[in-house]
Write a protein that binds this DNA or RNA. Structure first.
Lengths: 226, 226
DNA sequence: TAAATTTGAATTGTTAACAATTAATGCCTC
DNA sequence: GAGGCATTAATTGTTAACAATTCAAATTTA
């Protein structure tokens, strides 16, 4: 996609993080002129940004009907976690081959931040930091393709968590993240695979992907035939 | 990205397959007005298509300097093959869980086409069919996320093959594809992993990623200090 | 009253003119 | 001639007006 210039990138980042931070909820309409006013820019800019967000899967964009924050389905969520597992596994292996003292220190510092956010009860920050941890791993792996895919998946996951998270969830992933760093440094592939799998499964199982938010039943199905 | 309408999709597909078919070579400039004339459309359409191709990694797009067919580096190629290995492995596992008689028949029919193209010596068609085989697997897997990533990787790979293929390459992948189908139906994960790994390695090793098209040495390095 | 139709406002999509940038050419100076 | 400078042409980027579409409310009709 066309490289976004400075102004476009700014708008893009703000909308994107607003989605990630749950300020913009799934289904929220995103009208062009309204966004123009808010960001003091032109419709051309907004259109480009919305187009890109749509391509990212964060926004639904239907012809002549405008854009709204995406509402991923249960199927989307399931597919995403399968993909994420395989990408994370590959990233971990590459990262294990390339990790050095400096990057290990980075990771540990990041985990400290996560712990602090957890202790402070700052849930929003915890979610953001958790995503960043994985992107940090991707950066250490040095593989730009995997990094891009992971960034894509992490962003979409935040929408999925919003839609499908079980109400009681405690989500204290920094412990698991520490385990990943240990396994990375130990260089044991099997152990690494296991801890990655457990982590992704842990995230997925904190969600209610079964029947809670099913594809909406039609009015027929609800009221019909009695 | 904004859903492309019919006219845009047509232009997009034609440019994309022209790149895949080696009609447009890496580095070829893609001027907007020229493309307008060729496809009898407006600049707006062309710009959207070029933007999307740039996002796909098939086109380089620099501000105020226009677009040209991308020239992936050796590093790009290496990263891509690592990613492709992991994606293909995941697709194969999902496909193995979902394959039925009808889809197995599809795959076999496809392999017949590949064999025919090979016997006819139609190299261009062989490359296209080989990519399609993998996309067919992705479709069988039912995972839309993995399918999209694979489509992305396959498209970019064709550029890489053009740039880095060893001159003598015989490329008769339909035999390996048949092996993949067998392993799929056998449902043996370890065997499947092995055949997938061998296949991707086979493609990668048909390339000259070492020193043939290296990062260009600076003029200093070539002429300097003697 | 309920369905169908019309109307108009709100919104998105497209286009064509204008602006800005880059690359190339010719000119002048030394 | 080589290098520097101005001019010109080619190309990309932006914008603002116009067109098309959708949605909802108001009106009509049965």
């Amino acid at each position: 996609m066309a490289r976004l210039n400075a102004a476009e990138t700014q708008v893009y980042d703000r909308i994107r993080s607003a989605i990630g931070d749950r300020q913009l909820l799934p289904g929220q309409r995103l009208r062009e002129v309204e966004l123009c006013r808010i960001f003091d820019t032109t419709r051309g800019t907004i259109r480009k940004v919305l187009a890109r967000l749509a391509f990212d899967g964060l926004v639904d964009h239907q012809p002549n009907r405008g854009a709204s924050v995406a509402q991923p389905t249960v199927k989307d969520a399931a597919d995403l976690f399968v993909a994420r597992h395989c990408i994370e596994r590959a990233i971990a292996r590459e990262a294990a081959a390339r990790i050095d003292d400096a990057s290990a220190a980075h990771l540990r510092a990041h985990i400290d931040k996560e712990r602090a956010a957890h202790d402070a009860g700052d849930r929003q920050r915890m979610i953001a930091l958790s995503g960043e941890f994985h992107l940090l791993l991707a950066q250490i792996s040095g593989n730009t393709v995997l990094r891009r895919y992971l960034a894509d998946l992490v962003a979409r996951e935040s929408l999925i968590i919003q839609l499908y998270e079980k109400p009681d969830q405690g989500s204290c992933s920094h412990g698991e993240h520490a385990g990943i760093v240990e396994a990375l440094l130990a260089g044991n592939e099997a152990a690494l695979d296991a801890v990655i799998a457990a982590h992704i499964d842990g995230i997925a199982s904190s969600l209610d992907l079964e029947p809670v938010h099913p594809a909406r039943p039609s009015l027929e199905e609800v009221f019909g035939s009695r």
